[in-house]
Design a protein around this nucleic acid. Structure first.
Lengths: 254, 254
DNA sequence: CTATTTTTGTTCGAAAAGGTACGGTTTGCC
DNA sequence: GGCAAACCGTACCTTTTCGAACAAAAATAG
């Protein structure tokens, strides 16, 4: 029940040169990405890298104390392990699955070899790494200057882009960890959004009803990194992603 | 009064392979980096890249409205223009000199050529680019979770590392722009630090008196990116930088 | 040495967000 | 169906930060 990787829903894979895609496909394995599956950990060598399809993976920065915050969000438009693309073998950030789904994984060593062998592949992945850096800079901006409501709107839009759908299965608690705010603060902000008919919230599930409305609420804190991605990887807006997932989870690899 | 680039005080240059340093030196020009000199601007092609020596350059992220915030700080440990190193030719962030001083500049096109010609050079600069990404992630963390006092302590430590000295010539106003907070908020936090004998503040000048004390106040928000830099580029701590500047600004340094 | 600009000190009230606690729902499990 | 766990709604008071305005001090220019 596993379709070939070349039909993957991951945009970063799909937008690479067909030669590169063919080559990398031989090393990629379709995988179910379960909640909290870890891809990077401070002080540990990165062993595996993933290209999400319907899952969302978070990059979380931590200080020397324990409090963390999300510094990057990765979905079907990207990949984990940009440290490897940039010639390092580890990162001080944690990277783990935030919203379960599917994706394709590859051994870090394999990817290193492929990058050495194909400069077009290296270029392609490096451009994404730079876009992720831009996203992180925008997150720093939002964390410093936006209200909880604005940051929440931004996060929901980004997440919706990355799963290619409008329903997000996550709890207030998770959102509060990502945004680095109090859990009731999230509840409160969600109520405001729901009051404006911008989202519908059920238990552990948020559905976007009015994208333009959300973008207006996000008040300029959403969009910079996304437009830069489109400039680099082609015009289609991120949200327009209605391809079927490459992996049919019925009986897929555990 | 301009010494050869090979004696530069820039650590990123000094730590590269001697072949690469020799080659790149032929394209580098020593330069005075005056306040507000711009190296990158959203939507514009990056033409010139600099390796600061005694200057500090800021990467500032802006949203679609006008409010910006510092997302990266670059001094004698790094370089501007990581977008170019990563195969792009522009960035949505602004990059400009925050604290005047000296440095070396190179045309972006020249650097592109050198990177293509030397994979060891490319590797070296890419590692720095990754470190800058880590720094930005830590900034996102600090912006989201630290108090003004903690963020200020962090910023002062980072800036002192990057100028290789303990005196910083800047105003509360500038700091408030970088940190994205109210100007009186900076004044207030500086008073607290001064009360604890951690700094001495004069008009448009802050001197660090007690580094360990400042690190304690920074409360875990300083150090992660710095330790990662040392892991990548060698053990010496950033602050230990007592080489003379390559450019003698006669009379400029009071 | 006076006038002007720049920088810093200080104040007020208001808004935003934090910490904590607890009650109410929904869900899932036995 | 009943119990436990997970998740959400709400309330309280405190702290932090903001916005705005204005006064004092230091540098600078004429």
């Amino acid at each position: 029940m596993i379709l070939p990787i070349s039909n993957t829903r991951n945009r970063l894979l799909r937008s690479m040169a067909s030669d590169d895609l063919r080559t990398i496909s031989r090393h990629l394995s379709p995988a179910r990405l379960d909640l909290r599956r870890v891809f990077e950990q401070p002080g540990r060598r990165i062993e595996e890298i993933c290209f999400p399809e319907t899952a969302i993976v978070s990059v979380v920065a931590r200080g020397s104390d324990n409090r963390g915050i999300e510094a990057g969000l990765i979905g079907c438009e990207g990949m984990t392990g940009v440290a490897v693309v940039m010639g390092d073998d580890q990162s001080p950030n944690e990277t783990y699955v935030q919203l379960a789904g599917t994706g394709a994984v590859i051994a870090a060593d394999d990817l290193r070899g492929l990058i050495l062998a194909s400069s077009t592949l290296a270029d392609h992945l490096l451009k994404y790494a730079h876009n992720l850096m831009v996203q992180t800079a925008q997150t720093a901006l939002a964390n410093g200057r936006a209200t909880i409501e604005e940051r929440l709107a931004r996060w929901l839009l980004m997440a919706a882009d990355r799963v290619g759908g409008s329903e997000l299965a996550l709890t207030h608690e998770l959102l509060s960890l990502m945004l680095g705010v109090r859990r009731p603060g999230v509840t409160n902000a969600l109520h405001k959004l729901e009051g404006g008919q911008l989202i519908r919230a059920k238990r552990a599930s948020i559905t976007i009803r009015d994208r333009p409305g959300l973008e207006a609420i996000a008040n300029g804190f959403y969009g910079v990194a996304e437009r830069d991605y489109d400039r680099l990887f082609g015009g289609k807006t991120m949200a327009a992603n209605d391809v079927e997932p490459a992996i049919n989870l019925a009986g897929a690899a555990s």
